[in-house]
Design a protein around this nucleic acid. Structure first.
Length: 825
RNA sequence: GCCUGAGUGGUGGAAUAGGUAGACACAAGGGACUUAAAAUCCCUUGGGGCAUGUCCCCGUACCGGUUCGACUCCGGUCUCAGGCACCA
């Protein structure tokens, strides 16, 4: 151990030691309890940012702590290596996406290693590797066989700058999740995963994911958007077809006076054809569909519509209802058609007022009489049915059920459940992604690539076009293949898969990254999965976390995996903030982890990330705070330096009060740190506890330790404990201190310290004395003092007596060992 | 508008089961060491008061309630952040 703390030397020494000893390599061992800790793998953008560092520091503490607790800990790392930045770099710098990606992985791996994380690097994987996506293609084909993959033409979200289609989950407030540009609607054919088939299960399991933050579950529940109601068929004028609607208010059916269709609905043009309305409908539909998202859905967007010229019939009243096209009806939700009940729906009310459509009140509030002429807004609350035939006088809650049942009995609809979630569109018109293993044959249609031909390797021997267009469709040698079924000339699918597909199952593959007999080794996955602790940013609350849950359920139903859910516990860490804003290049407030590690060492960076705030909150980056972390490490270093060569006298068996006090603080700290890590992941308070302990130990002078062997012994024990308790947070310096204090290297192999309750007990404790709830003094009393004695001692306190004297003691509340409250009056 | 969080010193944050509010750290101020500076160490540090104390009053966004006792529980209000947002 050098005299002065030199992080660079210490860190190099221990990183080499860990690597040489293969300290973090793990294998399946059924005699040991497994623990799977995982941080969301990074996109290899080229450099690590503070968000990554924070994420991985949190995971590393958990991993190292669990290792010391004796678990067989798997802690893997890899690369979410497909994606558009690689293509953008190709356009900008003329580098091949594969070359760019590999170079970035190399660089980021080096940066990660420099931070000393406890990864089992033998399990590293990159999703752009054919041996990875090969199994993804294989799974695609199994899902296809199960009917979980299908192809359809639909209106999709298209991002112009990214030149590709986006899934609903990837559109945030009408804009592309990646580049922020408003998406446009486009009709396009593509591949879909049938996530809707699992909507109910995904929702139900939200209640069982007790280890997940409530807000993530809420976001998922909202996204799935289950609502109960009824489907109702409204026959068209011609009598042989009908418009189906979904409504949550079947109780208001008698008040449905017209019908509204989404502009995207094919019936709009169909129904108006040949009527006098044909032209205005076409104009209206064209106008709305070419509007951008903001103009259509923004606050100031007005509700407008056009009559189609056609009518349908209210199935219960027989009323002839005009069919309108309305800009506020969503094609994506329900059936894209809405029965309009202007008296009891605010949008329908405004629409009816604007266009002079009929308003019929069918729900009357208690003790009030609504009439269409005097209403200024829709009545949406509870009430009693009127104008509703046989249902008049029924409460509307009851009527919902009754009317649904009547519809079902008459085959005009019936109760149903509707979900907001749509199927996951996975086709991307991009190059740098996993090829979809399909061949399009003019005769046989979309034909799966046979398993034995997998992987369908993404050709890398290409010139990447400056236009940004995917080179795949122009790659004749690759595209033109015989149909696997009829052998006639056919064309390969040139869309690639959404990169969220790769990240939906990578955690399974970590259990057996080199397995080549199947997608996963059931044995290994059965042992390691599910992930016990998953850690990452909240930004994936819906996207990645929902898709991964879906994949786990699919794999389970394919009998490949046993778990119902991928992640038992989820921790969503906050952002890294500097000067009040998220770190970003445009704000110019980014801090480069590399530079910091160079200046202070990895341990200081790690310590600051963990100490500045609890993981789920945002972390405010300050240069002064980093300095503080560095100072603390130096203090600990110097403290150990001061005492390390101290010889410990043999145990005398009796301890002075001084030695007992050192033991007490030591064991109290073990307790605090253990509980803070184990129960709450509150590393900031865990570190604070060690700081307090260190502050206490610094008060022990060398002279004092020289003279009292029992103090020296307690002090040496304490210093070893400090090193042990710090080791998950700042592993390099901890190893160095531990070694200097005579410990064996490789601290993740030593057991985590256990506190001895016997050392925590004190003979005398501090009891706060309150009079009428206000603190008036404190007294010392034996730990097991009876209430009477405590009360007597308290009353003897001058300051307490001042408030009690001359008054009657009405009540005394004594919380043993804590507080005595005297109520006087 | 709806949902979910969160509001505590100059700052980041602590108070785990209702029991001393402000642990730990940063910043600031003062002191020691030094020719000097840096580094290090020590002291002070929520606001106010005076009688300077084991002192008093106020104080955890705001108003009210429960309780011997509330940052903590309950009701209401406000603000901020995030998510969803014409969802029929």
């Amino acid at each position: 151990m050098e005299k002065r703390y030199n992080p660079e030397a210490v860190e190099r020494k221990w990183q080499e030691f860990w690597e040489r000893e293969k300290l973090f390599k793990v294998e399946v061992d059924r005699s040991l309890q497994k623990y799977y800790v995982l941080e969301m793998f990074p996109y290899p953008s080229g450099s690590l940012h503070m968000g990554h560092v924070r994420n991985y520091c949190i995971g590393d503490v958990v991993a190292r702590f669990k290792m010391m607790r004796g678990y067989n800990v798997i802690h893997p790392m890899g690369w979410d290596a497909f994606g558009m930045p690689a293509e953008n770099a190709a356009i900008k710098h003329g580098v091949h996406p594969a070359v760019w990606t590999m170079r970035n992985i190399r660089e980021m791996r080096r940066q990660l290693k420099r931070l000393g994380y406890s990864y089992d690097w033998d399990r590293e994987l990159a999703t752009c590797h054919p041996e990875y996506y090969r199994w993804e293609q294989w799974l695609f084909l199994r899902m296809m066989e199960k009917g979980l993959v299908y192809r359809k033409k639909s209106i999709v979200n298209y991002c112009e700058p990214c030149r590709t289609v986006l899934a609903n989950e990837q559109v945030e407030a009408g804009a592309c999740w990646r580049c922020g540009t408003s998406v446009v609607q486009r009709e396009q054919e593509g591949w879909f995963f049938k996530i809707t088939q699992y909507a109910q299960e995904l929702l139900d399991w939200c209640d069982k994911l007790t280890g997940w933050p409530e807000r993530v579950l809420t976001m998922q529940r909202n996204w799935i958007g289950r609502s109960e109601g009824a489907r109702i068929l409204f026959p068209l004028g011609n009598g042989d077809s009908a418009i189906e609607v979904f409504t949550t208010r079947p109780d208001t059916l008698y008040g449905a006076t017209f019908m509204s269709l989404a502009p995207e609905h094919p019936l709009c043009l169909e129904l108006s054809r040949g009527t006098s309305q044909e032209e205005s409908v076409r104009d209206f539909v064209n106008r709305v569909l070419t509007q951008d998202w903001d103009a259509r859905t923004g606050e100031e967007a007005e509700k407008e519509g056009v009559f189609t010229g056609a009518y349908c019939v209210n199935p219960l009243t027989g009323r002839k209802m005009p069919i309108w096209v309305a800009n506020f009806v969503l094609y994506d939700y329900g059936t894209g058609a809405v029965m309009a009940v202007p008296a009891h729906d605010q949008r329908d009310f405004e629409f009816a007022k604007k266009y002079g459509l009929d308003i019929v009140v069918v729900i009357q509030p208690d003790g009030e009489k609504l009439s269409p002429e005097t209403m200024t807004e829709a009545y949406v609350e509870q009430g009693i049915l009127v104008n509703s035939g046989e249902f008049d006088g029924t409460g509307n809650a009851e009527a919902m059920k009754a009317i649904s049942e009547k519809l079902a009995a008459e085959r005009k609809g019936g109760p149903t459940v509707n979900y907001r979630i749509r199927d996951w569109g996975i086709s991307r018109q991009r190059y740098w992604g996993a090829p979809i293993p399909i061949v399009h044959c003019p005769d046989c249609g979309a034909v799966p690539t046979p398993d034995e031909d997998l992987p369908v390797v993404l050709p890398t021997d290409i010139e990447f076009p400056q236009s940004g267009r995917s080179p795949l469709p122009d790659l004749d040698w690759w595209v033109n293949v015989p149909c696997p079924r009829c052998k006639k000339p056919a064309r390969r699918e040139t869309d690639t898969m959404d990169t969220f597909v790769e990240s939906s199952w990578y955690f399974d593959r970590y259990a057996c990254p080199r397995y080549d007999k199947g997608i996963i080794d059931k044995e290994a996955v059965g042992y390691w999965l599910p992930v016990d602790q998953y850690i990452g940013g909240i930004e994936h609350a819906i996207l990645h976390l929902l898709y991964s849950r879906f994949f786990t359920k699919v794999l389970r139903d394919l009998k490949i995996k046993e778990s119902d859910e991928p992640f038992t516990n989820l921790l969503t860490q906050g952002m890294v903030i500097k000067d009040g804003a998220k770190m970003s290049k445009s704000k110019g407030n980014v801090v480069d982890p590399e530079e910091l590690v160079g200046r202070y060492g990895a341990d200081t960076v790690r310590l600051f990330c963990l100490f500045a705030s609890p993981p789920e909150r945002d972390l405010d980056w300050t240069a002064e705070g980093v300095e503080g972390a560095y100072r603390f490490l130096n203090r600990v270093w110097n403290l150990v330096q001061q005492h390390k060569d101290r010889k410990i006298a043999p145990d005398e068996g009796s301890y002075s009060e001084r030695a007992r006090a050192i033991r007490r603080v030591t064991h109290r700290t073990i307790k605090r740190v253990s509980e803070d890590i184990e129960n709450r992941f509150h590393f900031n308070t865990a570190i604070a506890a060690v700081m307090e302990m260190t502050n206490e130990l610094m008060k022990v002078t060398s002279q004092e330790a020289d003279q009292a062997p029992d103090v020296a012994e307690a002090l040496m024990e304490a210093l070893r404990i400090v090193a042990a308790l710090l080791s998950p947070f700042v592993p390099h310096i901890a190893e160095e201190l531990w070694e200097a204090l005579g410990g064996d290297p490789g601290m993740v192999r030593i057991p985590w310290p256990v506190f001895d309750p016997a050392f925590l007990t004190e003979d005398e404790i501090l009891i706060v004395v309150q009079v009428n709830g206000k603190k008036r003094g404190e007294i010392r009393a034996p730990v097991d003092a009876a209430e009477d004695l405590v009360r007597e001692t308290a009353l003897a306190e001058p300051n307490v007596r001042k408030y009690v004297e001359g008054k009657t003691l009405r009540k005394a509340v004594y919380v043993p060992g804590r507080i005595l409250n005297l109520v006087v009056g």
